[in-house]
Design a protein around this nucleic acid. Structure first.
Length: 586
RNA sequence: GCGCCCGUAGCUCAGUCGGAUAGAGCACCAGAUUCCUAAUCUGGGGGCCGCAGGUUCGAAUCCUGCCGGGCGCGCCA
């Protein structure tokens, strides 16, 4: 419908040029937007106002000239000039009702764009280190990324959902060590658990699994473990070097195979748990990308060579540096450390190159707000690789704070004192969690009210939307019990009977759906979809209270059923994009 | 210190590319059900859009400065 108005305006604009009212070289993109209130019709355009300067005529004259040149349209009731020079477009009832027809004809694909060939995108999100269970912050990333992926697909993008697995590096070593120490405890050894080790209860779980499988095969005494180790922070030493010395000790005592057993058991179990957790949250990935794989496949070397070939590498103090400062970053960055090991950043670069070489037009990264310092760095890397940084996009999610009984819950990852995504889902349900995570703009801090999210009451917006869907289903059940059938053909023929304010309002909301998909995809804003669905539910509930659907008049009844069926389809489709169920009864 | 994000009703937040009288939910007050689910609906009060300048036909929106809050600035991952 909006496109139709735009088309009319483009035609009128061409006529203006032909009639020399505006210069022939005048170029302008007419802006058509929804009006704020039906008093102003459905759509408004500011075309006359933006042409004022070039045409050297007052906006109202121009508006009149434009209206006189609009092609005839069967959808238009009338046009008006309003305010400082807006052209308001009033749609007729038939145009409004045609939305219902379109929704029913297209069913779940109403408002969806066909996949465009130049719109392939890789969307990376969550990518939490596999060193422990996902917490609520990851939950926001998961809900946001999964919803955005669906919305982008509906808007015509081909989307690959990726999770980058940091299965390499020091944090994994610390985890493997932590598991080994807990394993020794289970064997009956006394250990002094390091300050910077992973403290969570899940570490015992993994240790238990290893011990069940291998018994006391890798048991060593306290004396053997701590012999020659650096002192911990509380013992007058440095926490980091203490833990490094213990990691080395673990390898020495157990040998590579033994160490690997703990390393792999940790990775397998935690990654398995994460995958399971996300699946239960309705979040699926197309690709789990392993950091280790980057080294094994030679992608890491390939990326380093590319930077070198482009002249962006140099050696200083035994390390290999990337000239990031020449490409917009604040300083140069180490790629290969003095000890010969590559940095995490090197893997990031290799992964980026890999994404682009797989042929994606666009790469989106969804990160926590604490990562914003990496944007300049990775953009610099893109330039250094000879790629267009325009094709790489970073979305930062602000933090989540949980509130219970009006008080903020304090969390810290290191101490193992955090609320996991799984606990949150158990407490408030996946549906509520998915909605609450995306109900706010991604650049807003999120105050997550646990009491509200789990309340089964009218205060909870999730249930409000779901209830609208359930109510519609219920109407059709009642129809069944009255031994009546919904006849969509009769309904379609009688759509001109839908003239009540509430009906026009509901149809107006339905007609906006394609625009909502488009704009929330463009703005990377699943929250606008959430807001839209809430508004659609409001329109439906108001209609429900104001009018009876199951009336004796067969034509009117079927027309109304067509309308609410269309509403049901859009509610269902929109909820599914947000990963929220659409229950048939509540 | 430098960089990024935020500041809109009592609270939590929408507000698209600058557009008409700045909106929603919660809370508060007053009402609605012999009728398809009251997890619903109707009405009402409530605003220095952080502050000060600038850009223009027009600014919550763009620019500059300031104030307040959050986050980040490793040969860590």
């Amino acid at each position: 419908m909006k496109e139709h108005i735009e088309e009319l305006l483009i035609q009128a604009f061409l006529h203006l040029k032909r009639d020399k009212i505006v210069p022939a070289d005048c170029k302008i993109q007419p802006v058509v937007e929804r009006t704020r209130s039906p008093e102003h019709g459905e759509f408004a355009s500011n075309l006359a106002m933006v042409l004022t300067k070039q045409a050297k005529r007052p906006p109202k004259d121009l508006a009149k000239a434009i209206i006189n040149r609009l092609p005839k349209s069967r959808q238009l009731e009338k046009t008006e000039i309003a305010g400082p020079g807006f052209i308001n477009f009033f749609m007729n009832q038939m145009a409004m009702a045609s939305t219902v027809k379109e929704v029913l004809r297209k069913e779940g694909s109403y408002g969806h764009q066909p996949t465009q060939p130049d719109r392939s995108v890789t969307l990376e999100f969550v990518s939490a280190n596999p060193t422990g269970p996902l917490h609520v912050g990851h939950g926001r990333g998961a809900a946001y990324g999964a919803s955005l992926a669906c919305i982008l697909q509906a808007a015509g993008y081909e989307v690959q959902r990726e999770y980058y697995v940091n299965d390499h590096g020091r944090q994994m070593d610390i985890l493997a060590l932590s598991v080994w120490l807990r394993y020794l405890e289970l064997c009956g050894e006394k250990v002094r658990f390091p300050k910077n080790g992973y403290q969570g209860e899940y570490v015992y779980e993994i240790a238990r699994v290893v011990r069940n499988e291998h018994g006391d095969k890798w048991r060593f005494t306290e004396l053997e473990v701590y012999d020659g180790a650096e002192p911990d922070e509380g013992e007058g030493g440095d926490a980091e070097s203490h833990i490094d010395s213990l990691i080395n000790k673990a390898s020495d005592l157990m040998g590579h195979a033994g160490y690997l057993a703990f390393f792999n058991a940790s990775l397998d179990q935690i990654l398995g748990d994460i995958k399971n957790d996300l699946a239960e949250f309705g979040v699926e990935f197309d690709h789990w990308f392993s950091e280790v794989g980057l080294e094994e496949s030679g992608a890491l070397q390939h990326a380093i060579e590319r930077l070198d070939k482009n002249g962006y590498l140099y050696v200083k103090d035994g390390a290999t540096w990337f000239k990031a400062s020449e490409l917009g970053d604040e300083k140069d960055r180490v790629i290969v450390r003095e000890n010969g090991r590559t940095t995490y950043f090197a893997s990031d670069i290799a992964y980026l190159l890999n994404k682009l070489e797989r042929g994606f037009d666009h790469a989106i990264y969804v990160w926590g707000a604490d990562h914003h310092g990496y944007i300049a760095r990775l953009s610099a890397a893109a330039k250094g690789l000879g790629e267009d940084p325009e094709n790489i996009e970073f979305i930062l999610l602000q933090f989540v704070a949980l509130f219970r009984d009006g008080e903020k819950i304090q969390m810290s990852t290191r101490s193992g004192n955090f609320i996991t995504l799984r606990q949150l889902r158990d407490e408030v349900s996946s549906d509520a969690a998915r909605y609450f995570f995306v109900m706010r703009s991604h650049d807003q801090h999120l105050d997550f009210n646990l009491d509200l999210a789990k309340s089964r009451s009218n205060e909870n917006p999730v249930y409000y939307i779901q209830y609208a869907h359930a109510r519609i289903c219920s109407v059709f059940k009642n129809l069944d019990q009255m031994d009546l059938r919904h006849n969509a053909a009769i309904g379609e023929a009688a759509l001109d009977r839908l003239v009540e304010e509430h009906e026009l309002g509901l149809m107006r909301s339905l007609s906006r759906y394609p625009e909502v998909i488009e704009s929330s995809a463009r703005a990377r804003a699943p929250h606008s979809m959430a807001h839209y669905l809430h508004g659609l539910a409001t329109d439906f509930h108001a209609y429900y209270n104001a009018h009876q659907f199951l009336v004796d008049d067969e034509n009117l009844r079927n027309a109304r059923l067509n309308l609410i069926l269309a509403a049901r389809m859009v509610l269902q489709d929109g909820l599914s994009m947000l990963g929220i169920s659409a229950p048939e009864e509540m």
